[in-house]
Simulated assay, not measured.
Amino acid sequence: MTPPSHLLHTEEEEAVRAAVRALLTDHCDPATVLARTESDQACDRDLWKALTEGMGLAGLLVPEDRGGQGATHREAAVVLEELGRAVAPVPYLTSAVIATEALLGCGEAAADLLAALASGRTIGALAVPLATAPGDAYPLARYADGVLRGEVTGVADAGAADVLLVPSDGGLCAVDADRGGVTITPLTSLDRTRPLATVTFDAAPARPLALDAAAPVALGLRAGAGLLASEQLGLAEWCLAKTVRHTKERHQFNRPVGSFQALKHRLAQVWLDVVNLRAAARNAADALATGSDEPDLATALAQAYASPVAVRAAEEALQLHGGIGMTWEHPVHLALKRAKADSLALGTAGRHKEALAGLVALPAP
């Protein structure tokens, strides 16, 4: 069956994919990612610079007249697919999508900061727990006399951020991460390619960007959840391709293990899941880009489906690689950790199913 034409990739999107994949092939191989997770600096600054200053990808969601590339969520989704395939340790989702989308909802007060994020020379992070789903409550800092006080735990990529966007009782505020009054304490994270931290504000100087934080934060979380499905798609596709290749090359009883019927069935199920995830992720990206077909519904649908598929694909990849898949040197564990962490990020599948049921007026009995 031919998919709807609006869900197919355009020539421009495929060109973006080819350029990003070539860059990641040269600068983000599994050995490099593994070495990065064992270092004190989780974020690969050189790779980030190549993606942003070199290719202009940090500003895809930002209009040209505001310092960006004037592209859409569709192009950003393609970038995230490739970053997901490589489990790339860069803050693209948190800075170029979530923080940028939140700033787009702040109007002219955030114009200079938005241009800085679009250039890639400044990294932003929205100071809410990564587990927060669109529509969920999140902690608010206390704002008074130009300073913030409070604490937020589970903030993704806070350690790499130059500026933090902080929801407060006085609206959405911008805080320089290296200013006095800001303490960032790293947490032990399952996925070390997207580290978490607790951020404490103790009379931290802040600049208000919007009188009400709810609307810009909602935009950021929705875009993040919708495009996270594309990252999970890229990860699942890599797991499937890597596993198929291994089962063709690995022999037992003088036959490729991939010829055994039980393994064929398992891989066929993963393939079917990935195909369906591709449709859901593309639909979410297109809905966010065009504003049509109910972006909230498309996002909830994609996230309700994406997390279980990505986790299943990574688990099958680890198991079907046999003993070598259990070793630290093999990259499949990086994919499994990212898949597990993503399944909790921006709302669990169960949380999105609840949202989906409400949107279509079919709540659970």
Rank of each mutant, 00 (worst) to 15 (best):
L272H: 14
D191F: 06
H246R: 12
T327P: 10
E101D: 10
A364L: 15
D40Y: 00
E13P: 14
R282H: 14
V244D: 12
G107T: 09
A289R: 05
V87E: 04
G180V: 13
A339G: 10
R351G: 13
G146L: 05
T183H: 07
R45I: 14
A99T: 11
R207A: 13
T200Q: 09
V147L: 02
G59A: 11
Q319V: 15
T2E: 13
L165C: 02
E316L: 11
P167C: 04
A306C: 12
P30F: 06
P295G: 08
G59M: 09
A289E: 07
L272T: 15
R245E: 14
G325D: 09
A284H: 02
A77Q: 04
R338Y: 04
Q232L: 08
K264L: 08
E315Y: 01
Y92K: 10
A214C: 00
A86D: 04
T153D: 15
S119E: 15
L362G: 01
V309G: 07
S292R: 15
A262M: 06
E81Q: 14
A313E: 12
R282L: 10
H73Q: 08
T198C: 08
A22W: 11
V332R: 01
V175M: 02
G180I: 03
P216S: 09
Q303L: 13
L359S: 06
K242L: 05
G154C: 07
R17C: 02
A76I: 03
L228K: 06
A109P: 00
P186C: 10
F201T: 02
P186A: 06
A203F: 05
G124K: 02
Q252D: 10
L34H: 08
L359E: 03
A118N: 04
D202A: 13
L267C: 07
N276L: 10
R266K: 07
H6T: 13
D191H: 08
R194Y: 01
S343Q: 04
P134C: 03
Y138Q: 03
V199K: 05
S5C: 00
A357Q: 15
G234L: 02
P139A: 04
G220A: 12
S292W: 01
P30N: 04
S119F: 05
G107F: 06
T132D: 10
E13T: 12
L103S: 07
A289D: 09
V199P: 12
A345S: 14
Y305Q: 13
P308W: 05
A268L: 07
H9N: 01
R21G: 03
R282I: 02
L211T: 14
C239Y: 02
L320P: 12
P256E: 06
A111P: 02
